[in-house]
Design a protein around this nucleic acid. Structure first.
Lengths: 213, 213
DNA sequence: GTCTATACTTGGATAGAC
DNA sequence: GTCTATCCAAGTATAGAC
């Protein structure tokens, strides 16, 4: 407590610091104009700052977009990570998925991710970077699936890796398609469906093997 | 039979006709350079023709890309439509899905679609066009689901519309993610999983209500 | 750190010769 | 229908004044 908090150098992040402002403008642009429309000029326009700043602070547009993706990743991890790790049933997870989707929709996190994934085709090096940033999320889902299924009779039947891949792919696909026609009702309806039937899936997992050998 | 077949005007499609050549170049470019890289010049380079031809024949790059999407749609419908309609069990469908994915992978159909979907964010009008071209496919899946589930005890539990949406989204997401790191093994593994467990899902559907009220 | 100015490249699109 | 030439807008990036 005290004014120590304000003793920031202004080169670090802070409310009015430039780098985060640029990153936010990049996110907003990716969201509203897509990867193809995320040019330095467009981003600068969105954030009302000088276009040259992007190159001063990030070196290139691509670096900025990756930094933006990192920011998204960090924010989501901070916001959802702990809750996700705490969830212990399929029902809780389905509920959480629906909640997270609604939030992601608000701030366009998944759209940004989808555009970057699509942009990876245009620029293979970018693609590799995006892929590596996606991996922790896939692993997080995979770990959780492993824990959930562990000890259940279904354990040998469900390869956590494949299912995790499918979940992430589905999440991405849902957002892209919803974005396409601005109709998020189908996505919500689908997530409701998930919440409704998750308890059923949970029941199947309850049938456990005798613990210990 | 006779030389009548060759009496084409050269304004229609034919082996060496220009319009289809341009369309094919556009598809190839979308596939390899993505939506963001599908410029008139790049497409012309890919097809080794003059860039001005695009505007003569299609008016704009966007029109060309939509024409390319139409071509993909028509080809896929011709190739898979009949087989799909004929399929009558979940197992057959899962098997078909795996087969179709392999083919799509070869010629990049889904990648093209994914890039166009992502491009829809950059250009809302394009987005609407893409969406309307996607709808027949979604409806086709929905109809098939309806038929499969019809009469089963699960019928009131499974909204065909939502599940169709999920299937298309999943298919799109799988391709985009696989494209990202050039690793299609995960996708194949996932589709194998589908084939393996489809019979199980089929069994659940076998439990039928007594027909006729 | 930020701004102006600028160099250079690529992209969409059209005019006009062939 | 096709090609060359060209216009102009937009893009990345840098230099240099402030």
């Amino acid at each position: 407590m005290g004014p120590i908090e304000q003793q920031r150098t202004d080169t670090d992040e802070g409310p009015g610091a430039t780098k985060p402002r640029i990153v936010d403008a990049a996110l907003e642009t990716l969201r509203s104009h897509g990867f193809a429309g995320a040019s330095a000029r467009q981003i600068a326009r969105a954030g009302a700052f000088n276009q040259a700043l992007i190159f001063y602070h990030f070196g290139s547009v691509r670096n900025l977009l990756l930094a933006a993706l990192d920011t998204v990743s960090a924010r989501r991890m901070a916001a959802y990570g702990p809750v996700f790790e705490r969830a212990q049933t399929i029902s809780e997870l389905a509920f959480l998925a629906r909640e997270i989707y609604a939030e992601d929709l608000q701030n366009g996190y998944v759209t940004v991710l989808g555009e970057m994934v699509a942009g990876g085709v245009s620029d293979p090096e970018l693609g590799r970077e995006v892929a590596s940033r996606l991996q922790p999320w896939m692993e997080m889902v995979e770990r959780k699936l492993g824990v959930l299924v562990s000890g259940s009779l279904l354990e040998p039947l469900i390869p956590a890796r494949d299912v995790a891949f499918a979940i992430v792919a589905l999440y991405l696909g849902i957002d892209l398609l919803s974005q396409l026609d601005g109709d998020h009702a189908r996505a919500e309806s689908l997530l409701d469906l998930g919440v409704r039937y998750a308890p059923l899936a949970g029941t199947l997992l309850v049938a456990r093997q005798a613990p210990g050998r």
